[in-house]
């Protein structure tokens, strides 16, 4: 089932250094160890799925990587450089793009303007008080939109887009700083099955083509098994399994956790 394209293999082999290395990451909330000594790494051009039942610590783990939460312990390395505890915008400057679980776009802007906004920020032009923002990085924005299949809707307001299209815009925005690592929090939540597959296939293609490492959390097991190169499983803050989708599926610990909590594949 796993969809490893030749491009992904070449990318992974060419750059065997992992893009993201996480060591002993830990975070407690009032005595509860939400994340407890988690370590893993992601190779360029590959997709790593982070799964686990509700309350396993996925979101906490994720927010420590993107800078929203400061870890109590452990370290996060991006291409060998520490980004532990940096603010989100600093993490972004280091080359991390991200998408949100609840789509987060700029409702007062058009699709193209949203992407231009990210490009303007990437180019360090944000403090420029004159000159029309709409005229800047137009071609680059259109190229990114073409990549995610949204070129035709460039002039539309973000506020009126269909949900699946918003996700694509978010992806284009996340790609604007030419990231080395893409963090996607439940990228397919709230989408219809067919759209989920389209979006993740698109993401996998882009990741492979550009050598971007992708870490995503996901509830939909179909998506996980179809689109991940490897999977890590969290339960009560601890990493209980790590391997290919196939291996993880067979893992007795994982089965116990999932069957024990009553969650089944494809559910929310």
């Amino acid at each position: 089932m796993s969809a490893v394209s030749p491009a992904q293999i070449t990318a992974a082999v060419a750059a065997s250094e992992p893009v993201l290395v996480v060591r002993d990451l830990a975070k407690s909330f009032g005595g509860v160890r939400a994340v407890d000594g988690v370590s893993f790494s992601v190779l360029p051009g590959t997709m790593l799925a982070l799964i686990g039942p509700n309350g396993a610590g996925k979101t906490t783990c994720f927010n420590m990587l993107n800078g929203q939460l400061r870890p109590d312990g452990g370290e996060v390395l991006l291409a060998g450089r520490p980004i532990t505890g940096m603010k989100p915008r600093a993490v972004w400057r280091m080359g991390v793009g991200r998408t949100f679980q609840i789509t987060a776009t700029f409702t007062s802007m058009t699709v193209r303007e949203s992407v231009q906004m990210a490009l303007i920020s990437h180019a360090g032009e944000i403090w420029s008080p004159f000159g029309r923002a709409r005229d800047r990085h137009r071609e680059a924005a259109d190229a990114l939109l073409a990549q995610v299949g949204m070129a035709a809707q460039a002039e539309r307001a973000c506020g009126v887009l269909a949900y699946g299209d918003l996700k694509r815009v978010e992806l284009a925005v996340a790609l604007a700083n030419q990231p080395r690592l893409l963090l996607m929090d439940e990228p397919t939540a709230g989408m219809a099955p067919r759209e989920r597959i389209e979006l993740m296939a698109l993401t996998a293609d882009i990741a492979a083509a550009k050598g971007i490492a992708v870490l995503f959390t996901e509830h939909d097991m179909d998506v996980v098994f179809t689109h991940s190169d490897s999977v890590i499983v969290l339960d009560r803050g601890r990493l209980i399994a790590h391997g290919t989708a196939q291996e993880v599926r067979q893992d007795p610990n994982v089965r116990a956790v999932y069957l024990g909590t009553g969650a089944t594949s494809g559910g929310h």
């Binding site: 949100f100 990210a118 944000i126």
Partner: peptide, 18 residues
């Protein structure tokens, strides 16, 4: 535009380096 981005969605704005 940066100002509006910050208003529309502060989290997203921070996540694109603003």
């Amino acid at each position: 535009y940066g100002l509006r981005a910050a208003r529309d969605n502060a989290l997203r704005a921070e996540a694109i380096g603003l």
